[in-house]
Nucleic acid binder design. Structure first.
Lengths: 242, 242
DNA sequence: GAGTGGTCTAGACCACGAA
DNA sequence: TCGTGGTCTAGACCACTCT
């Protein structure tokens, strides 16, 4: 046996995991799909069931799959609850998350600004869709946000103004075929601009929480840039350090 | 065999994990200690090595243990790096965390205020130690914070004013025998008070980021309440959504 | 009852670190 | 060279879901 040894050793289960990730990326396995059982996958990949399980367990812990005993393994999808609970960290005084309502302000095509191009890895001036909307908790305006998404990922989005759902990530997944799997957020405190103050019903200059979010799909490719300005009098942003 | 079946079934590895958690809580296994090897633990608990491994792996993924191939399994401890990198989420424009310097403002005994008592699960008016200090990044004041810790957990802390280290969690662990294992943070945007403005060299009313942190030890018991006020002109708070 | 994931075992071999 | 954790296997049995 003349196998390559120690240098660049890669565990079997990681190789299997990468193959599975490819299937997720190219949508051979699409959100909501039921995967073959462990035994079938094991013989398909030519490894033992335990090795398949380790790969599946890791993908599950990264929230890319969902497993349930007796039913099977499924590709994770953006249900309304998952989107809201996983990607919205605003809680009220009792530490409860609430269902926010969204109202569209406007949506238009535009050319990527330098910060957007850098964040989304676009050429300067590449076409993007910009959505401005406000979000309400208990019928009070709490968030004014602007969402920027590359037009090449969402062609035709600009014609859906009337039908924008509360949870955009579901729309991306179902209609445009890409899934948001994780995101980074950068928070700072700023003074409300005249526009933001008007949207939130505040005095200009009121301190507001500025949240810049960059959302990624499977292969860590950025797919959406979002700037949310929050009024944090009755709600706070919850962050768990584990 | 008359064993209790389905109701209240608990996997072996979870029972093992709970036993291990007890040893961590009561400090039979103290931070920095080397644990017995998997084989020894397996025979000690009367289970297979694989079952012990699953318990160890879970504790490791919760950052309570550290494993390293060839060396062994250790109880996680608060090194300077771990404290700073795990519990400080401020990054600069290049997304880099930096080493902050601390300067003590004052430290005194006091009686728990209602919000402190509620957060720390103390009786109203129970004795606490309060520390006020400022933190500097690149020699600029960026954070003004007040730390509240129950006096019963840190008797004598009030006499250590001259020797307060940069990372309090190391001090708690080494000198007072309790470890911070996780924390929750609530963020909001507020106007700098006269005191905060003076400490940070800002105009009164400047928008600043308010971070309220509650830190917990092994058994989810709260052990420290911290209120940090940050100037976020040159730094932002980074939060990863996975 | 059939099929799924979840648990548990026993044993083999490999990669790594330290003496 | 030895002891450690890391990987991989094969097989048994259990708990859950659906039909």
């Amino acid at each position: 046996m003349d196998e390559i040894k120690s240098p660049s050793f890669k565990p079997l289960y990681q190789q299997v995991k990468e193959l599975m990730l490819m299937r997720l990326t190219d949508r051979s396995w699409a959100p909501g799909d039921l995967l073959p059982s462990e035994g079938v996958l094991a013989s398909e990949f030519g490894v033992s069931q335990g090795t398949v399980r380790k790969a599946l367990d890791e993908l599950t812990s990264e929230n890319l799959l969902r497993r349930s005993q007796g039913r099977g393994t499924f590709v994770a999808e953006h249900t309304t609850n998952r989107s809201l609970f996983h990607f919205l960290n605003l809680v009220n005084a009792d530490n409860e998350k609430q269902i926010p309502q969204s109202r569209l302000v406007d949506m238009q095509l535009g050319l990527a600004e330098p910060d957007e191009a850098k964040a989304l890895k676009l050429e300067l001036g590449e076409q993007v869709v910009r959505i401005r909307r406000n979000r309400y908790l208990n019928d009070c305006p709490v968030i004014a946000e602007q969402i920027t998404v590359p037009w090449k990922l969402t062609p035709g989005l600009e014609n859906l103004a009337e039908d924008l759902p509360n949870t955009l990530y579901q729309l991306y997944e179902k209609r445009f075929g890409f899934s948001v799997t994780k995101a980074s957020e950068w928070l700072s405190a700023i003074s409300a601009s005249p526009y933001e103050a008007a949207q939130l019903g505040l005095a200009v200059g009121t301190p507001v929480l500025c949240i810049q979010r960059l959302a990624y799909t499977y292969n860590a490719q950025p797919v959406e840039f979002r700037l949310s300005v929050c009024h944090t009098a009755n709600h706070r942003y919850l962050s768990e350090l584990t």
